[in-house]
C-alpha cells in the first residue's frame, strides 16, 4: 500500500471490497459538488463574514437595543406559539388517530396545508382575517382585542406555519400506543385523566418534544407569514429575520451576519439538544419495559 493515499483510492478499495454496484464515483461526485456549492459554501460565507467581524464588533451589534428587542419579540412569540401548538397539536393528533368520524381523512390532509401554502400567501390571508374588518378581527374588535399589527399577530402567524410539525411528530407515537395498557390502568381504578397523565403522556413525550422543538425552530425563522401581520414597529413588533433584511438593505452586512449567525447557532444548538434529549427519552422508555 502506498504511503500516501487519496480519499478516492480508499473509496475504490472499499468498493472493490463491498459493493458490486456501479456508479459510486459519478453519484458521489455529483452529490458532493452539489452540497458544496449549494449548502456548504454559503454557510462558509456566513462563517467567513462573522470571522471578519471580531468579538467586539459582534457584541456591539448584538447589544444594540433594537437587536435585543427583535430577539425578545421573536423568541417570546415563538415560545407562546410553540406552547399553543404543543397543546393543540396533541389534541389534533389524538383525535386523528383514536377516533373515527366523518371528515377524519379530510382533517388529516388539512393539517399539511400550512406546509403547502406559500408563506406570503399565508401572510396576507392572516391579515385579512384578523384586521379590524376581517372575519375574526371584527369579532374581537368590540372586546378591544387587536391581533393584526400587534405582537399577538406574530404569534398567530407562527402558530399557523408551524402547527403541522407538532401534529406529525406526535401522531405516529399515538399509533404505537397499546390500548390494553390504558384499559389495564382503568380497571385498576384510574380516571381518564389519571390514565392519560400516567400512562399515555410519558410515552408521547419524545414526540411532543420533537414536535414542539421543530415548531419552535421554525417559528424563530419564520418571515413571510409574519411580516404582513406584525406591523413591524422597531422595538415592539419587529422580528429578527426582518431586522436582518433591514440591515441588508442598509448594506450593513456585518450586522446582518451577526444577527443571522446568532439565529442560526440558536437553531442548530436547539436541534442538537432535541436530538440528544429524544435519544435519552427513548432509552428511558425502553429501559422501563
Amino acid at each position: 500500500m502506498p504511503l500516501l493515499q487519496t480519499p478516492l483510492d480508499a473509496l475504490r478499495r472499499r468498493r472493490a471490497r463491498r459493493s458490486p454496484f456501479p456508479g459510486l464515483g459519478l453519484t458521489l461526485g455529483v452529490s458532493v459538488t452539489f452540497v458544496t456549492l449549494i449548502v456548504l459554501l454559503p454557510l462558509a460565507g456566513l462563517g467567513w463574514q462573522l470571522s471578519q467581524l471580531g468579538i467586539s464588533d459582534y457584541l456591539f451589534v448584538m447589544s444594540d437595543e433594537r437587536t435585543l428587542a427583535a430577539l425578545r419579540v421573536t423568541i417570546g412569540a415563538a415560545a407562546l406559539a410553540t406552547v399553543f401548538n404543543g397543546v393543540f397539536g396533541l389534541l389534533l393528533a389524538w383525535v386523528l388517530v383514536r377516533y373515527r368520524f366523518v371528515g377524519r381523512s379530510a382533517l388529516d390532509a388539512l393539517v399539511d396545508l400550512p406546509f403547502a401554502l406559500p408563506t406570503s400567501v399565508a401572510g396576507i390571508a392572516l391579515v385579512a382575517l384578523y384586521s379590524k374588518d376581517g372575519w375574526i378581527g371584527s369579532l374581537l374588535a368590540p372586546l378591544d382585542i387587536q391581533i393584526a399589527y400587534s405582537w399577538w399577530g406574530i404569534v398567530v402567524a407562527m402558530v399557523f406555519t408551524s402547527v403541522p410539525f407538532a401534529v406529525r411528530a406526535i401522531q405516529p407515537l399515538i399509533e404505537e400506543l397499546d390500548p390494553l395498557e390504558e384499559a389495564a390502568a382503568r380497571t385498576l381504578g384510574a380516571s381518564d385523566w389519571q390514565t392519560f397523565r400516567s400512562i399515555v403522556l410519558p410515552k408521547l413525550s419524545p414526540g411532543i418534544l420533537t414536535g414542539t422543538g421543530l415548531s419552535f425552530v421554525r417559528s424563530l425563522g419564520e418571515f413571510g407569514a409574519v411580516i404582513f401581520i406584525a406591523g413591524n414597529i422597531p422595538y415592539e413588533t419587529e422580528i429578527a429575520s426582518l431586522l436582518i433584511m433591514i440591515r441588508l438593505d442598509e448594506f450593513d452586512y456585518p450586522a446582518a451576519a451577526a444577527i443571522a449567525g446568532t439565529m442560526l447557532a440558536l437553531s442548530l444548538v436547539l436541534l442538537v439538544l432535541i436530538n440528544i434529549a429524544q435519544t435519552r427519552l427513548y432509552r428511558r422508555l425502553e429501559g422501563g419495559q
Binding site: 425563522g221 429575520s241 451576519a257
Partner: peptide
C-alpha cells in the same frame, strides 16, 4: 431559516 439562507 429563509432569510439566513438568502443572506448566506
Amino acid at each position: 431559516s429563509p432569510i439566513v439562507a438568502g443572506l448566506c
